[in-house]
Simulated scan of single mutants.
Amino acid sequence: MEIAGRITANSTVHKVSNDKQVVNFSIAINDNYKPRGSTEVKGVVTYINCSYWFNAKTAEWLKKGVLVQLFGRIGLNVYCNQEGKPISSLTFHTNNIKILTFAKKTELIENGVMSSIAKRKKSETADDLPF
């Protein structure tokens, strides 16, 4: 299954066990439709919680405003709350992430991404190039 949308907040990394980490984030998918018999276009936003288990370092790129294309499957989480009432939610379990566009430069600076990119570029020298 494939979905695309903008990340709504910076991703978070949670340690599940000694050797497992999961990257959690949420995306917003904008859609619109025209109700029958109306000329007005209505907008609808769907928010989807996502998880990515393969590489926790990916979280540094998954910042608010980034447009991503995700490939994976939908999973159902079911549990009982403190009152014993069953609660459920859907999560998109991502196995491949493609960044389509980054957030605006001002958002990247605020989120600290630009400083990590600058650090990497400083540490690279001409000797590091493969050609």
Rank of each mutant, 00 (worst) to 15 (best):
F92T: 01
K20Q: 11
S123F: 11
F25M: 13
V113W: 00
N30H: 14
S17V: 07
N95I: 10
I74G: 03
N49S: 14
L108H: 04
V41T: 04
G37K: 10
T91G: 01
L70A: 00
L100G: 04
I109C: 04
N95E: 08
G72K: 03
N24L: 14
Y79Q: 02
E2G: 05
Q69R: 12
N77G: 06
E2Q: 15
C50H: 03
M1E: 11
T8G: 07
S123Y: 09
I87R: 08
I97P: 00
L70V: 00
N55P: 04
E2L: 10
D19E: 15
T106F: 08
P86V: 07
I87L: 08
A126R: 12
S115M: 13
V113A: 10
S51E: 11
T58C: 11
W53K: 11
L76M: 11
S89M: 07
V68F: 00
A56M: 05
S11Y: 02
A126M: 10
K98G: 02
V66Q: 10
S115C: 07
S115E: 15
A28V: 07
L100S: 10
G84L: 09
D31L: 01
F25K: 07
T58Q: 15
D31E: 13
L108M: 15
L67K: 14
V45L: 02
A28Y: 00
Q69H: 03
T91E: 11
V113D: 02
S115T: 15
K105T: 13
R36H: 07
F71I: 05
I117M: 13
H14R: 15
S123N: 14
G43Q: 07
A103D: 08
V66W: 03
I117N: 05
K64N: 12
S88G: 06
L129T: 01
I48S: 08
N55I: 04
S89I: 02
V113E: 03
I87C: 08
D31F: 09
V113Q: 07
G37A: 03
T125N: 12
Q69K: 13
A126F: 13
